[in-house]
Design a protein around this nucleic acid. Structure first.
Lengths: 216, 216
DNA sequence: TAGATTGTTAATCGATTAACAATC
DNA sequence: TAGATTGTTAATCGATTAACAATC
C-alpha cells in the first residue's frame, strides 16, 4: 500500500499532526475532506498536504478528496499506533511521574511496563497502575521483559551512562527528557531528545522581539 | 552589537542549544573554541556555526576562534535570559505541577508568579513556593500583576477559550502543553505549542522502521 | 611573517509551492 | 459530460555546505 522510498524527516514530523487533525474531524463526523479544506484548518498549503500524503501512496480520490477515516487509519498504521512496544521509564521525579500519568502511551504504539528510580524511598510507590522499582532491578527486568523503548527523566549527569547500559540490555529507542543531548554511536538506535527548556527559551526570544515592544 | 536583519526561525531554534553547549564548555573551564571544534561536539558543520553566529554580529576573532564566555553571554542576551517576564501557569494537574517544579524559569528570562487551577480542591495547595489559586482569580491577578507569558497545562477543550480570554487580559505569549494546536489571530501574540504525544509518536515511527526490524 | 580561523560570498541541496494533466 | 480534486512534474524558494579572501 505504501510507496515509501525515502521519506524526508520533515514529512514524518508533520505526520502526527495530520493524525490528530483527522481524528478531530472523524469525531465531528466529517467523512470526506479535500486538501484545500484541510489546508485551511491546519494552516498549511494544499500543495504540501497532497505532496506529503503521496509519499506513502495514493490515499485520495480525484474529484472527491480524502476519506477521513481511512486516511487516518493509514497514517496511524504508518506511524505505528497499532504496535505495543514495551516501554520503561527511568526517573520517577515530578517530571517522570507526570509523563507516566499524562501521556497516553497505548494510543502511540507503546506500553508502559516498568518505572524505575534510584531513590529507594520511592520503591513500591505506585504511579498509575505501576509500582516504582529500584534501578538495580532494571537489568533483570530487561532480560525478562525485553522492553524496546526507554523514557529518560533523570539528571543530565547520569544520562549517557544509563543510556549506554540500556543499549546493552536491548533498548533500541530513547525518549530523553534530561537536559542533555543524548547521542548513541551504535547503529540502529533512535533518540528523541526533548528539551523543554529550549522550547521556553525560544518563546522568551520571540516575546522580547515582538514588533510592538522594541525596547532597546 | 547585533546585525539582526531578519533572522530565520531555523537559526533561532538552534540558539538555545548553542547556549547550552557553551555553558557546558564554560563549566569545564574552556576559554576559546573554534567553529570546527564546536561542530564536532554539536554534530553540526563548522560552516553552519559560523553562518549562524554571524547573523547577530562578529563574535569571533579570525585566526583564534570564539571566546566561550563572551559568546555565551551574547547568545544569552539575544535569547533574553536576562529578562524577567512575569509568567502564569494554568492547570495544576500532574503535568502543570511537574513543569512548575522542573523548569528553571529564571534562567530563561521568566518568573513564575502565579499558578491557577479550576478545581477548588487544589486551591491553597503549594507548588514550590507558590500557592495554587482558583481560576476565578486570574482576571484580578492579571490586572494587578500584568503577567506577559502563560503556560497552559489544561485539557484541550478549554484551551482556545482560555487563551482568548488571557489575550484580553494582556498575555502576549503562550507556552501551550494541551493536546491542541493553539492559534491566535491577534497580531503580536506568540504561541509555542508543545506536543509531547507527537514527539513520542515520531519515535514510535522510527522504532518501527529501524533498519534491522523490517517486519512486514 | 606564517598559520589559523573567521566572515562572507557562491554553489549545492532539499523542501515548499505552483501548475496542470489525469481521472474520478 | 462537466466540475472537482487528486497525483505528479516543474519552478521557486530557503537553508545548508563549500570555498576562499580577509585578518588576527
Amino acid at each position: 500500500m505504501s510507496k515509501n522510498g525515502n521519506i524526508s524527516s520533515s514529512v514524518i514530523k508533520r505526520l502526527p499532526r495530520y493524525y490528530r487533525f483527522l481524528g478531530e474531524l472523524e469525531k465531528q463526523g466529517v467523512e470526506r475532506i479535500s486538501s484545500r479544506e484541510l489546508s485551511e484548518k491546519m494552516k498549511l498549503t494544499a500543495s504540501q498536504i497532497r505532496q506529503d500524503l503521496n509519499c506513502f501512496g495514493g490515499f485520495g480520490q480525484q474529484g472527491y478528496g480524502y476519506q477521513v477515516q481511512s486516511l487516518r487509519e493509514e497514517i496511524g498504521h504508518i506511524l505505528g499506533v497499532d504496535k505495543a512496544y514495551s516501554t520503561i521509564l527511568i526517573g520517577a521525579g515530578n517530571l517522570g511521574k507526570a509523563i507516566a500519568l499524562h501521556i497516553n502511551f497505548e494510543t502511540r504504539g507503546c506500553q508502559l511496563t516498568g518505572i524505575f528510580d534510584a531513590n529507594p524511598r520511592l520503591t513500591g510507590e505506585t504511579v498509575g497502575s505501576l509500582a516504582i522499582r529500584h534501578t538495580d532491578e532494571i537489568e533483570e527486568f530487561c532480560k525478562a521483559e525485553h522492553p524496546v523503548i526507554a523514557v529518560l527523566c533523570i539528571p543530565k549527569a547520569n544520562t549517557q551512562a544509563i543510556a549506554d547500559k540500556l543499549v546493552g540490555l536491548g533498548i533500541r529507542s530513547f525518549w530523553n527528557f534530561s537536559h542533555y543531548d543524548l547521542t548513541i554511536d551504535h547503529q540502529g538506535i533512535e533518540v528523541e531528545n526533548v528539551h523543554l527548556g529550549d522550547s521556553l527559551l525560544t518563546l522568551t526570544y520571540r516575546t522580547s522581539h515582538l514588533k510592538d515592544s522594541e525596547e532597546e
